[in-house]
Simulated scan of single mutants.
Amino acid sequence: MARPPLPIGTWGNIRTEKLGPNRYCARARFRDYDGKTRDVEATGTTGPAATRALKEKMRDRATPNDDEITRDTHVSTLANLWIEEITAEERVAPQTINKYETSLRTAILPALGNLRIREAGVGRLDKFLREVATDRPSAAKNAKVVLGQMFALAVRRGALTTNPVRETGRLRKPRRTVRALETEHLEGVRSAIRQWQQPTPGKPGPRHTGDLADIVDLMLATGARIGEILAGRWEDADLGTEQPTVTICGTIVYVKGKGFFRQEWTKSDAGYRTVVLPRFAVGMLLARKLNAADNPHDAIFASRRGTWLSPQNVRRQWRQARADTGLEWVTPHTFRKTVATLIDKEADTDSAAAQLGHGSKEITKKHYIVKPALAPDSSHILEQLGASPTTTSP
């Protein structure tokens, strides 16, 4: 009967041989991770030292192959190879690759880049992710996505048998209270923008345009993301019908080396939508079209040079406008939450989700709608828990 093969990653009897003064060799048969059994040896100044060296060598052994990724490959090298692969495949959007590279540059490589793949075990990766999550939960989440895909590449290339990132613990998700604008807040927003747009005597530079006020109005009229608003073209707006509409069909993105440009699709399939405009937005757009200068992109909001406006610049302008107004908590995404909360209150969650371009109303409900402070009226049900009326005798 044939002897059963060694289990993968294990070795047989260790044999020690003296080679000379203070020089010993330890040998064993080791079954590699590709299923083949090979002779492995190590030397030391004594027999026990040679045995220890051999055991360490087999513990950290990588399967012999012609691939450029092995267990001894540095994490920084693995990161570069992974970025090259996903870039060549063209299945990941360029702006997403930029986000991955930022995570690598700012978080992952400074902490883990000099490690070899075999040294990046579950415990070490888990500790790293939790340390990042202490102050930057979103950065930790991005880092976990990047590391998971990197080490998946190492598994596919035979350098690892399992992906250690999968065994790390779940990251803490900070509880965030959804906050939307009330009527008094809206007036404060518009007042802050009007004040910011006023010319300042003696201040150098071009005068502020009316773009910020119009952008905020269109965000409140549609619930669209800031990138979707800035990607709007006049051909996407139909203002001459009984129900004027605008079609959300693109977004402004940034790619390193290319700058800001209009992406011809939205964040998700559900994001491609046509929304009916309220009267205040129709009036604003008609007035804007009357005075708009031509630009090569047919953009509703274009820079003085006729280029697409960047979301970062608009966010910076809003931060300047809201300074010292008590509105520091209000971001462009707050306008989106305000739209969702109002539609949910006056109509339903399905309508709010459709307006925002969400594929699932659960996302809208969890992240965009302010929870009501008043519970549903169940007083008639709870009446059953009251004390029975006492009967008085005549």
Rank of each mutant, 00 (worst) to 15 (best):
L285G: 10
R38W: 08
K173Q: 15
I229V: 12
G123Q: 14
K127L: 08
W265P: 02
L309A: 05
L230M: 00
N163D: 09
K57E: 15
T177M: 12
A281M: 12
D135N: 04
S393C: 04
G271V: 03
I8A: 00
R31D: 08
A287C: 08
T46E: 06
R59K: 14
A213F: 01
R116C: 04
Y33Q: 09
L109Q: 06
P4K: 13
A213T: 01
P389H: 10
N291Y: 09
L290W: 04
R207V: 08
L19K: 13
N98W: 00
F128V: 08
A213Y: 01
D60W: 07
I193V: 13
D238C: 11
L125I: 06
A154F: 12
P311V: 11
L286M: 09
L382H: 08
E56C: 03
D294L: 03
S393L: 02
N65W: 12
E383K: 00
V146R: 03
A237V: 05
T73Y: 06
I226R: 06
L239A: 11
D135K: 05
V155W: 13
W82D: 02
T341M: 10
A353N: 14
T307K: 01
V132H: 01
T134R: 10
A49R: 02
D32G: 09
V282G: 07
D66M: 03
D324I: 07
K141G: 04
G169R: 06
T200Y: 15
D348H: 08
A180S: 14
L218A: 07
S138I: 07
L374I: 14
R172D: 13
K289A: 15
A270F: 11
R288K: 10
D39W: 09
G47H: 02
K371F: 10
D66A: 09
Y272C: 04
L129Q: 05
R316Y: 15
G359I: 12
S360N: 00
I193G: 05
G44P: 00
V145H: 10
T77L: 01
P4E: 15
T51P: 00
T73P: 00
A28I: 10
N142C: 02
E346W: 04
R279E: 15
K345W: 03
R157K: 12
R71S: 15
K57L: 15
I117G: 02
P296E: 12
P296L: 14
A293P: 06
A287E: 15
R170A: 03
K365E: 13
N313A: 09
D126N: 04
D344R: 01
D324Q: 11
D126K: 03
T338N: 11
K144A: 11
A107V: 04
G259D: 00
K256F: 01
F261H: 15
A287M: 07
V178E: 13
T307F: 01
R61G: 08
W196M: 11
T102K: 07
A107Y: 07
K99H: 07
P21I: 12
K144P: 02
K203F: 12
D269K: 14
L81D: 05
S310I: 09
D126Q: 04
R273Y: 09
H358L: 02
L212K: 00
T200F: 11
L220K: 07
E17T: 11
K267Q: 15
A180F: 14
M219R: 00
E264L: 12
A293R: 14
G202I: 08
T245W: 09
E346A: 02
I97A: 07
A152E: 15
A143Q: 04
